[in-house]
């Protein structure tokens, strides 16, 4: 993503930065829409989920539970649990946008999903400010396409008979790997990634999806929190 001589406006740059994300989430948006309808949701409910919850993994869990006889409270709790990682994103991004008006901050948190968070952190990493135009250019574009893809899946879900042959199911892991690699200059990167990888694989196997995300993430964060601080002496452990 080289900066060209005639650099585009922050908003256009945000829209541009959303391109790989929009491509990568396409199969998931369509798949979600199709599965939601297959699980008994109306197309309206499928699109409503994407537009208001806007968190793919939890939505997949949600429609899985809708299909069974499970109490609404438990479904809502499951959504909360799967999405709990956003608390960490929120804390990390919140400290970088404290000078924004409250309403704008509130809107920013609504579109705070994995790729938007990661791209915002990448900007901060390079010492760049998070401009509102860029942030919403990216966030709203991802939100819009996620919602449209869901509608597409809900309407035409039966038409893609082999997403596997198109490689659609593995694009997102490759994209996420690229994001992981982009953080490699941070302190403790290797031990954090190692701990997360190990814990998530174990959790995936012994606890089950989607808990591997929270458990693996916490393991990596714990390594960073418990490692000896670089210079200052701690008063207590």
């Amino acid at each position: 993503m080289a900066e060209s001589a005639a650099s585009p406006s922050p908003m256009m740059q945000g829209v541009r930065d959303s391109t790989p994300v929009v491509v990568a989430i396409l199969p998931f948006g369509v798949l979600f829409g199709a599965l939601a309808v297959a699980n008994g949701l109306t197309p309206f409910e499928a699109v409503l989920m994407s537009a208001t919850i806007f968190a793919g993994a939890s939505q997949m869990v949600g429609i899985e539970l809708f299909g069974r006889e499970i109490s609404p409270a438990l479904i809502v709790f499951a959504l909360f649990a799967v999405n709990f990682r956003h608390v960490l994103y929120s804390a990390a991004i919140g400290r970088r946008i404290t000078d924004w008006p409250i309403g704008r901050q509130a809107a920013a948190f609504f579109v705070l999903c994995d790729p938007v968070y990661a791209e915002a952190e990448r900007k901060a990493e390079r010492g760049l400010p998070i401009e509102p135009g860029w942030y919403f250019g990216m966030g709203v574009t991802v939100w819009l396409f996620w919602t449209l893809q869901t509608a597409l899946g809900a309407a035409f879900g039966g038409l893609i008979d082999d997403p596997h042959a198109l490689g659609l199911d593995f694009l997102l892991p490759i994209y996420f790997l690229g994001l992981v690699m982009s953080f490699r200059s941070r302190p403790l990167w290797a031990p954090v990634v190692l701990a997360s990888a190990l814990a998530s694989v174990l959790a995936y196997r012994f606890v089950g999806s989607p808990w591997h995300v929270s458990i693996g993430g916490l393991a990596g964060v714990a390594v960073a929190a418990l490692a000896p601080p670089p210079k200052t002496v701690e008063a207590d452990g």
Binding site: Y89, S90, G94, V180, W189, V193, V201, S209, V213, T232
Partner: peptide
């Protein structure tokens, strides 16, 4: 929750810096 802190403790800061790599890794490894 975090905006209630006047100053972010170093360990919390270190933890926050590790968040993206930690969470994103879990979406790759399994």
């Amino acid at each position: 929750v975090l905006s209630r802190f006047d100053e972010i403790p170093p360990r919390v800061e270190a933890a926050l810096n590790a968040v993206p790599a930690a969470v994103l890794t879990t979406l790759v490894a399994p």
